[in-house]
Amino acid sequence: MRWKGGRRSDNVEDRRGMSVAKGAAGGGIGVVLIAVVAMLLGVDPSQILNQFTAPDSTSQNSATTTTGKISDELGEFVSVVLADTEDTWHELFRQMGRTYTEPKLVLFTGAVQSACGYAQSATGPFYCSGDQKVYIDLGFYNDLKERFKAPGDFAQAYVIAHEIGHHVQNLLGILPQVHEARSQADKATANALLVKLELQADCLAGVWAYHADKARQVVETGDVEEALRAASSIGDDRLQMQAQGYVVPDAFTHGTSEQRARWFTQGIKSGNPNMCNTFQAKNL
């Protein structure tokens, strides 16, 4: 991916190396299930996290958050990708007659406190609509490379673009509508809605890639394959099979490997957010 020399975003909060409020001790199968779900790209994890962890109000931060001042290469990469999503979605929202509000992206290590609750690194990257921030421990990229066999900078960019996709859904009113519908639905229906939400975010990540390459020629040979490999490596079917040896479709929350790769492809081929309406798609 051609990213060096690109504009850096001022919306990165670097909390790496900071101590945070510690959660209450927990264990048993609940924690194991969270660890399995952890590596999925998440959205608003508060409903799960708050059941197992609670902040200790006596804990204090040991460092000051740094905003927009990143010196390490991986941090710079994240900042450039975030800036690229900003440029892309500002223009697309302008074309829709809307205004794009830029989210913050928080880098952390170990654990973090968000408006959606206390989260540990095992939760994986997530977007919190409560504070309109994306949270990521960059150690996830090592998991993406080693555990999920999906290396490459464009695969890493896909992770960020997916979470920004959730922010786009939030600004368009899709995210709150889905959360409201899920709160009134049975578990299977609620999971099915979440799958559609996640697949749409994959498609929106593809839309970003289309416009980023068209405007700034960021895509190099092999990059699309990297992103597709990353999308398919974290499909529900593959993760369930790895974790438990069998697949339970009713428990899917993000979609199969094939679905995730296919919806990303839909976005990067069309560049049209309107082609990402998973909620009206006859076949996911």
Rank of each mutant, 00 (worst) to 15 (best):
S233C: 13
F148G: 02
G97R: 04
L138S: 09
A201H: 00
S121D: 15
A209R: 06
D236H: 02
A181T: 15
G5R: 00
S9Y: 12
K196I: 04
G17A: 02
Y246G: 00
A54P: 01
G130Y: 11
P176V: 12
R238V: 14
L92K: 13
D223V: 09
R8C: 00
V43A: 13
E226K: 06
A122R: 10
V247D: 10
G255C: 01
A281N: 06
E163T: 13
D56W: 13
E146A: 08
E180I: 07
Q47R: 11
S233L: 01
T253H: 10
R260V: 13
M39L: 09
D237R: 09
L239G: 06
S79T: 08
L194I: 01
L172E: 11
S71T: 15
G117M: 11
I268A: 00
T58F: 14
A188G: 03
G235M: 07
R229E: 08
W263S: 05
G245P: 11
D250S: 14
I268H: 11
S57P: 05
V248Y: 12
D186I: 13
H162G: 12
W89L: 11
T265W: 00
C203T: 11
N277H: 10
E198F: 09
C203P: 08
L33D: 04
D237E: 01
N142Y: 03
V168N: 03
A215P: 13
W89M: 05
R98Y: 06
L175M: 07
G23N: 03
D143S: 10
E180F: 06
I164L: 07
T265S: 07
S19E: 12
K4G: 03
F148C: 07
K133Y: 04
I48H: 15
R260E: 10
L239K: 05
Y118W: 07
P103E: 09
V195L: 02
Y210H: 11
D84L: 03
F77S: 00
L33Q: 07
R147L: 15
R7E: 08
K149Q: 14
T88I: 15
S46Y: 12
Q280H: 06
M39Y: 12
N277K: 05
L239W: 00
S233Y: 03
N191W: 04
D213Y: 00
A83P: 04
V248R: 11
K149W: 01
V81N: 02
I70V: 15
G222W: 00
C128K: 12
L49D: 03
V37Q: 15
D10Q: 14
T278Q: 07
A185S: 15
G235D: 05
G68W: 03
D14E: 04
